[in-house]
């Protein structure tokens, strides 16, 4: 579904990705873990072209990620942001129908009905007419997920979806994500929630200094890491938690 081969990315002098090889199969949940600055968010942002990678190839469902393929790719993969990035001047419902109506030309009535279903799914139907600014972080992120689903994506990229949330709000977002995983959605998730990764992810990839240092079955990587740096990272994160 999503493949990266030899992907590099530099910001000026600094090499952020130094040859990333990664494959996400259809219906798979893959968690990217790693320290801050390791490049894991940049991997996501290269997949939907928010950053242009320098070398290597990225394919999404057979479409190459480049200037020509970008629109097709963005139709197939949706993104959920760390800071939600809901449009603050539009209501919850308007946020969800924004892309269907104003990008893909879906009939507003139809899009609205579908959006209300999606909002019900993330338990936000009661807030359909609120502005994002009136909602808690957890609520906003659930709307962010509904907005992503409204694209009818084949895969969803999650960029640290719970990192900006109050601790007591993390659970409600992870619950929605778990349900999506159970329904077979292809998900690539940058996260610090090791417990969630262990429970929900099919595979885990540990990103360190711009490369995939280790990847494998979630239980394997998180319980018996082969690499010393993976073990060090896990020890550090789990200690904090």
């Amino acid at each position: 579904m999503i493949t990266l081969a030899g992907v590099t990315k530099r910001f000026g002098e600094r090499a952020v990705l130094k040859g990333v090889d990664l494959a996400v199969a259809r219906g798979e949940v893959l968690c990217l873990i790693g320290g801050s600055g390791s490049g894991k968010s940049t991997i996501l942002r290269c997949i939907n072209g928010l950053e242009r990678h320098d070398e290597g190839e990225i394919h999404v469902g057979g479409t190459r990620v480049d200037a020509a393929g970008l629109q097709a790719v963005r139709r197939r993969v949706a993104m959920v942001f760390q800071r939600f990035n809901l449009f603050p001047h539009r209501t919850v419902l308007e946020n969800v129908i924004e892309a269907p109506v104003h990008v893909h030309g879906e009939a507003p009535a139809e899009a609205r009905a579908r959006a209300l279903d999606l909002l019900a799914r993330v338990d936000m139907a009661d807030h359909a007419h609120s502005l994002p600014g009136a909602l808690s972080g957890g609520q906003q992120q659930r709307v962010g997920i509904a907005r992503a689903l409204a694209l009818r994506p084949e895969a969803i990229l999650f960029d640290e979806p719970t990192s900006a949330l109050d601790p007591e709000r993390v659970g409600e977002v992870l619950r929605v994500m778990r349900e999506l995983a159970e329904e077979g959605m292809t998900m690539l998730i940058v996260t610090h929630e090791i417990g969630f990764a262990r429970e929900v992810a099919d595979r885990v990839a540990f990103v360190d200094q711009g490369v995939i240092a280790e990847q494998g079955a979630a239980a394997e990587v998180l319980t018996h890491p082969r690499e010393a740096r993976t073990a060090q990272f896990l020890a550090r994160v789990l200690q904090k938690g």
Partner: peptide, 9 residues
């Protein structure tokens, strides 16, 4: 970026 990611031109 959210607009970009949603496919807006």
């Amino acid at each position: 970026e959210a607009g970009d990611a949603l496919g807006m031109n």
